[in-house]
């Protein structure tokens, strides 16, 4: 009886993790990283075969992957060449995604280990998916080190559903620097005159927006068919 209940609990957990696993892959893909289609659309059976222990419990330590940025993403994130810097380096790089094996809350030490791992392997971005919330000081570690590598944290329960697939969520497209400059010139705006979006907004977190980036939001409109608006991340 007890075995059965634990087995069903494991089953539930594995299903939850599978959904988070798929969402985080879709997220990486939407941000512009190169991922194979079968990696993103992994079936539950294959996931169970690969990422569970013998007793059916999920093996979080195994759930990690890295992805390289695609050509389009590199192009988007490369600042325009200037006379002093004719060949600028792109501002994006390999991303590292890891599911935290600890199920208890995350302290400084776990966070530091993750940050160090990202720094050692020259990852430009790191995403830590945790089962429970970070402690206040661990959050501080995350923000302090975000200058060198962009560290993000997501809760497993936040990733159960891919919010961008919801019908009420319009399409958000990140603008490159040139596109942003063109937009501001076209409408004769200053940056601050754009509508805003918070960086802690779920969509902004999904796309990994940084302060000063602009998203183009395309929504369907009854009167205009399609309507594009722009928001500045603050």
């Amino acid at each position: 009886m007890e075995e059965e209940s634990s087995a069903s609990m494991h089953l539930k957990e594995v299903t939850r993790l599978w959904r988070a696993w798929r969402t985080i892959h879709e997220m990486a893909q939407d941000r512009g990283y190169e991922l194979a289609e079968e990696e993103v659309k992994i079936s539950l059976d294959r996931f169970r075969a690969e990422y569970t222990n013998d007793d059916g419990s999920p093996n979080r330590a195994k759930m990690q992957f890295s992805a390289r940025p695609s050509e389009a993403m590199i192009k988007k994130f490369t600042p325009p060449p200037t006379p002093s810097n004719p060949d600028p380096a792109p501002e994006c790089g390999t991303i590292w995604v890891e599911f935290c094996p600890d199920k208890s809350s995350i302290g400084i030490s776990v966070m530091k280990k993750f940050v160090e791992h990202c720094a050692q392997n020259n990852f430009k971005a790191g995403i830590l998916v945790t089962a429970s919330a970070l402690s206040a000081q661990a959050r501080k570690v995350m923000t302090v080190t975000s200058q060198f590598t962009l560290i993000e944290c997501f809760l497993e329960e936040d990733l159960l559903v891919n919010i961008t697939h919801h019908e009420l969520v319009p399409k958000h497209i990140l603008l490159s620097r040139e596109e942003k400059a063109a937009l501001l010139k076209r409408y004769r705006l200053k940056e601050t005159q754009l509508p805003r979006i918070l960086s802690k907004d779920p969509i902004a977190r999904y796309l990994g927006l940084k302060k000063g980036q602009v998203v183009k939001i395309i929504r369907t409109s009854e009167t205009a068919g399609r309507y594009a608006s722009y928001r500045l991340c603050v």
Partner: peptide, 11 residues
């Protein structure tokens, strides 16, 4: 309070 939380994270 953060310190207490931090110690609790370590069990």
């Amino acid at each position: 309070l953060d310190l207490i939380e931090e110690r609790n994270c370590l069990g």
